[in-house]
Design a protein around this nucleic acid. Structure first.
Length: 351
DNA sequence: TTCATGACCTC
DNA sequence: CCTTGTGTCATGAA
């Protein structure tokens, strides 16, 4: 038996936004709590819900009106992103300080490289991570450990909330075989549907497909990813310093003037950029039937002014309107082809 | 290289 | 009044 095998731990904060709210207001514990994105006082969608609410049928993404109908004692709170970000920042900082290789994958998820020679060691490290997170922030998390990101993620998903699960390399194949197809990351509804057409409903069904068949159906990259994932193979590396490649801001139009809205989105985006320059601007228009149309332009220069953003955003919107005059529900504004001009500022962690 | 679109993620 | 707000990546066409 080889000593010190490299493994990956996925640390995932449980129902993060709602748990942050419970931390802020302990009297909420035990009550059904949902953090909501409101577009109007009584209108919006569920962004995060604690397990009390989930057990009563509240689901992430659900309209607030439906959730309230279902659970009338539901506590609905608006998003307080800067609070969640500060907690996240504390947690991630503690992980980075203690472990050599950490990838901050999102506001509530991090991959950590660990060394463990056996299951017992891995469990010990996993529970040390859980203790660290709890001590640092008061937040309860779930840790999944496996030979790669895929196994770590699936182990974690399988044992939420407040869980810890280690799937050692020699158990990986069986672990995957016993999983359902939709438990595999990047296999969503569309992929499930297309696999069904190919006669595949389980992991073992799908393993009968050749890599060529999968590439033909899903494209080169994704075909190979799925072929490997079905066998527990995943060679994605831990990326210790990920850099944002684009930023976007959305808003629901309501009765607002779209051009005013674009000005507001520009201002909000510009704040977020904190000095970063950009060369591509894009607009995303979402219609009443939820269909999407996008338009983007690459500038001939690196821009850094909010006025450019406003002007180009409105121009792109006019161009879309000229081709498609349907009623607009939401508008998004995006900047990409970014160039970092200064050091990381606090706002890099607050939104 | 640019641009449009779509799948997926997750709270 | 059902359906928020971000972000990454891949593909295919021009």
């Amino acid at each position: 038996m080889i000593n010190h095998r490299k493994l990956i731990a996925l640390v995932d904060m449980d129902y993060f936004f709602a748990q942050c709210e419970e931390l802020k207001r302990p009297e909420l514990k035990g009550r059904p709590v949902a953090v909501c994105m409101f577009t109007a006082p009584e209108r919006g969608a569920i962004s995060s819900a604690n397990y009390v609410a989930r057990e009563l049928g509240v689901k992430v993404g659900m309209p607030v009106s439906i959730a309230k109908q279902q659970v009338n004692e539901l506590v609905t709170l608006p998003v307080d992103m800067s609070y969640y970000s500060s907690l996240s920042f504390k947690i991630m900082g503690a992980l980075i300080a203690k472990y050599k290789k950490v990838e901050v994958a999102s506001i509530d998820e991090a991959y950590v490289e660990i060394n463990a020679s056996n299951n017992k060691d891995a469990v010990g490290i996993g529970s040390a991570i859980k203790d660290l997170v709890l001590k640092e922030s008061g937040i309860i998390c779930t840790v999944g450990i496996g030979q790669n990101k895929l196994i770590a993620k699936m182990a974690c998903d399988s044992i939420k909330p407040n869980g810890l699960r280690v799937v050692m390399p020699e158990e990986s194949a069986e672990f995957i075989e016993k999983s359902s197809l939709n438990a595999i990351p990047y296999i969503g509804n569309k992929t499930i549907e297309r696999l069904g057409i190919l006669g595949c409903y389980t992991v073992n069904d799908a393993k009968k497909l050749t890599v060529e068949q999968l590439e033909k159906e899903f494209g080169n990259k994704k075909g190979i990813f799925i072929y490997n994932a079905l066998r527990g193979i995943d060679d994605r590396a831990i990326q210790t310093n990920r850099v944002r490649k684009e930023y976007e801001r959305f808003a629901t139009l309501g009765n607002n003037d779209p051009f005013n809205l674009i000005d507001e989105l520009s201002a909000s985006l510009f704040l977020r950029l904190s000095g970063m320059k950009f060369q591509e601007i894009g607009i995303i228009v979402i219609y009443e039937d939820m269909s999407v149309r996008t338009k983007a332009i690459t500038l001939k220069f690196l821009a850094s002014s909010v006025d450019v953003l406003k002007a180009e955003g409105k121009q792109l919107f006019r161009e879309i309107q000229a081709v498609d005059g349907r009623k607009v529900r939401r508008i998004g504004l995006r900047v990409s082809k970014l160039k970092q001009t200064n050091y990381l500022s606090l706002s890099d962690y607050t939104n």
